[in-house]
Design a protein around this nucleic acid. Structure first.
Lengths: 201, 201
DNA sequence: TCTTTAAAACCTAACCGTTAGTGTTACGGT
DNA sequence: ACCGTAACACTAACGGTTAGGTTTTAAAGA
């Protein structure tokens, strides 16, 4: 049982952070492919098995904040005020994420990602997970009459918006445009399923 | 010059096909993870290096027709009659692909894919490639006034349609619904240059 | 026909991410 | 003070993938 409150947790977190920091530093210094897992472990002064008990794969070392993204997205759905419309809430959150990723401090990392097929692939599978979590959150919202298919589609569209905008020359404008498209796509799902007038806006 | 007319091409294709057939058979018999590359090579009676000169990875053995899909999608854009609208042409092609993948003969393969994280990840990165090819084809169409961002977004939406519909309980109906959403999303991109207000209901 | 060229296939041996198996340490609860 | 267990360590291996260099074989020119 026991809330493991204390030193153990702190030490574990410190170890994890040290591994992540060391890895990122080495990757940026020498290139992702030129640095082996054994190098990272040695430099962070931990065993290889310890490294893998904190991170599921070499690529996961780069996308350390993965789960934050996921939580923020689903919370944008679940934590919004009653009757607050879905799409603008998502737009707001995605905009924050895009801003975070296009900040100057992040550009070396994204350049590294673009240059490594393994990292690009990993990022894509990450986004699939995010889309699925988001779809689950949207589907679970009792205030939305849409069916599962529409929710799953919209969830993917939102993740696409993030991906496309992040790579666009002008991310803010691109995001605006794509969310206009998403808004239109979402609107038509209201009309099709039920002839029942769920009263207008 | 070289029109390497004949035998060499045929033999190469035969070798490739033999490897692919053997691999698929072994995977279905014993399970994807339980079969090693060395097993496939031995059973197909080729060297491991030969196998990798035909297929870039173990996962590629399963998605042998990858490139056909890609060509058919881009051709659906480039080969359509003048003034034929884009979205219905894409809908038609995606519907054919979905039918192909949900055929009874294909179900064991997709079950295998669903059970293997490596295969799911590979499929996702495949779809990213398809979306990028499709985006390039759409952007290059001189008859379409839309900007690059809208084209890239729509390309991803179309690939999403395929992915979501394939997994839906009723793929045909799901595809109809998602393409209604895509049609709406595409329609609003035409308006943005001139007017900012959204049309009434 | 004979020779030349180069693609295709071969073999060996390794590289590197990842995991299993098996201790060892030290924190936290009792 | 003592026990259970979470965190970490070490070795050795497994499996996909690649580098190196050699042999076969189809295709084209002499």
């Amino acid at each position: 049982m026991t809330v493991p409150s204390g030193r153990r947790e702190r030490k574990k977190a410190a170890t994890r952070q040290k591994i992540a920091d060391t890895a990122l530093r080495l990757f940026l210094e020498r290139g992702y492919d030129a640095v082996g897992i054994r190098d990272v472990a040695a430099e962070a002064d931990v065993a290889v098995t310890t490294l893998f008990s904190h991170f599921a794969s070499k690529e996961a070392l780069v996308f350390e904040q993965d789960e934050d993204f996921e939580h923020r997205l689903t919370q944008a759905v679940t934590d919004r005020a009653p009757h607050e419309p879905l799409i603008p809430a998502l737009r707001h959150e995605v905009q924050a994420l895009v801003r975070h990723c296009t900040a100057d401090s992040a550009t070396p990392i994204w350049r590294m990602v673009e240059e490594s097929p393994a990292l690009r692939e990993y990022e894509e599978s990450m986004r699939l997970r995010h889309a699925e979590s988001l779809a689950a959150a949207i589907t679970a919202d009792p205030g939305l009459p849409q069916d599962t298919t529409a929710c799953r589609a919209i969830a993917r569209f939102v993740i696409d918006a993030y991906a496309v905008a992040r790579e666009a020359a002008d991310p803010e404008t691109a995001l605006d445009e794509i969310f206009r498209m998403i808004e239109a796509a979402w609107a038509v799902t209201r009309l099709s399923g039920t002839a029942t007038g769920t009263a207008g806006p």
